[in-house]
Every structure is written in structure tokens, then in C-alpha cells.
């Protein structure tokens, strides 16, 4: 088994070799490490992409907007991922960001995962039949875990999820009521001796 340190170093060096800058290569190394740590096929996708990249043209998108259309080629997932990460604070306001064509979409996920951590919000990603929930860079939930990820994604959709409860108020109240069974009824004397007792609150 390869260690994550080996995965990081080799991905970084390969990325430099195919033309990314050292700073970008560092980001890619960390990104592939993260994908592999979370159980996704980072190495497989990166290797496939770099081999295709020799003969195939991919689009580099610099400034990301809410709706991003590439007329010809698929977007490079790495440039897109790094720019998404860099621009996340300004992208946050869009709530939903769409890309019509993304090559090797799996490679973009770890950048989105890190973006989720930066803004402190979960991010939902959908393309084809695949769906991912990026949880503040702590983990990635997916319906694609053991399947190959599509090489190309048409209609890649990123939804930034506002921080809100994942349960109903009724569920919360019900559970809270159960938790109250650990509380003890106070006597009058213990109320009188509690913090702040005996002082005037208007001092």
C-alpha cells in the first residue's frame, strides 16, 4: 500500500512535469492525498487525465461566475479547482455555480472540499447521476464511492448550503425532552445559594 506521503509527493512531481507551477503542484499533491484518504480514486483519475492532456486540449477558466459555459473543450478540473478554492469567498454569494463541461470532475472535488472548510458551509455537488456532499473538509459523502467516476461531466452543479439544522424542530424538541430526564429538580435552598445569589442585580 502506498502511503499518503508518497501519493502527495508523486502527484506533486507529476503535476510539475505536465506543466503546472510548483505552487499549483503543491495544491494538487494535497488534493490527491485528500481524495485517496477519503476513499476516492484520485491517483487513477489524475494519471488518466495527465495522459490525455498530452494530446487533448482543455479549457482554463480564470474568473468563475455563477454560470460558466465553455463552447468547445471541457474545463481543466485542476485549474478550475484551484481557482474555485482561491475565489471561494466571492463565489459564496452565488449559492449555486454551474459549469457546462468539466473534465475528470472527481479531481475538482477536493478543492471544493477545502473551499467548504474555508467558508464553514457544506457544499453539494451534482453531475450526471453522481452526488457528493462535502462536509467542511472533514469527509465527503457520495453515492459513487465504489464506482468509477465519469471522465466528463456535463452540467456540473455546485450548491453552497446555508448552515441550518438537518432535522425538524419536532425531532429536536422530542429528543430534548428525553435528555431532560438527566436533570434534577432544585430545592429552594439550592436556588438561593446559586451563582449571583444574595447580590442585587441592579448594582
Amino acid at each position: 500500500m502506498k502511503s499518503l506521503s508518497e501519493i502527495d509527493t508523486t502527484s506533486k512531481r507529476a503535476s510539475k512535469a505536465v506543466g503546472f507551477s510548483w505552487g499549483e503542484a503543491e495544491e494538487i499533491g494535497k488534493s490527491i492525498r485528500l481524495l485517496e484518504l477519503f476513499g476516492f480514486q484520485g491517483i487513477k483519475n489524475l494519471n488518466h487525465y495527465y495522459n490525455l492532456k498530452i494530446n487533448q486540449k482543455f479549457e482554463n477558466l480564470s474568473l468563475i461566475k455563477a454560470n460558466n459555459i465553455s463552447k468547445n473543450n471541457y474545463y481543466c478540473p485542476i485549474t478550475l479547482g484551484i481557482n474555485f478554492l482561491d475565489q471561494i469567498r466571492s463565489l459564496e454569494k452565488y449559492k449555486q455555480i454551474k459549469f457546462n463541461k468539466v473534465a475528470f470532475p472527481l479531481l475538482m472535488l477536493s478543492f471544493l472540499s477545502r473551499s467548504s472548510e474555508i467558508i464553514g458551509k457544506k457544499i453539494n455537488v451534482r453531475f450526471d447521476d453522481a452526488e457528493f456532499l462535502l462536509n467542511l473538509n472533514v469527509n465527503i459523502a457520495s453515492n459513487l464511492l465504489n464506482n468509477d467516476c465519469p471522465i466528463n461531466a456535463d452540467n456540473f452543479e455546485v450548491n453552497i448550503i446555508d448552515n441550518k439544522d438537518n432535522f425538524s424542530e419536532e425531532d429536536w424538541k422530542s429528543l430534548y425532552k428525553i435528555s431532560e430526564q438527566t436533570f434534577v429538580e432544585e430545592t429552594d435552598s439550592s436556588k438561593q445559594g446559586a451563582a449571583g445569589a444574595g447580590l442585587t442585580d441592579n448594582d
Binding site: S21, W22, L63, S90
Partner: peptide
């Protein structure tokens, strides 16, 4: 802002960090 700066200066990303 640095996000815009890095678009044109990716070769200096490592030292920016």
C-alpha cells in the same frame, strides 16, 4: 486581491504561500 493576482502569476504561488 490575491485570488485575482494568482490568476496571472501562478508561477509565484509557492512563494506567495
Amino acid at each position: 486581491t490575491i485570488d485575482k493576482f494568482l490568476i496571472e502569476n501562478a508561477d509565484l504561488r509557492h512563494v506567495t504561500r
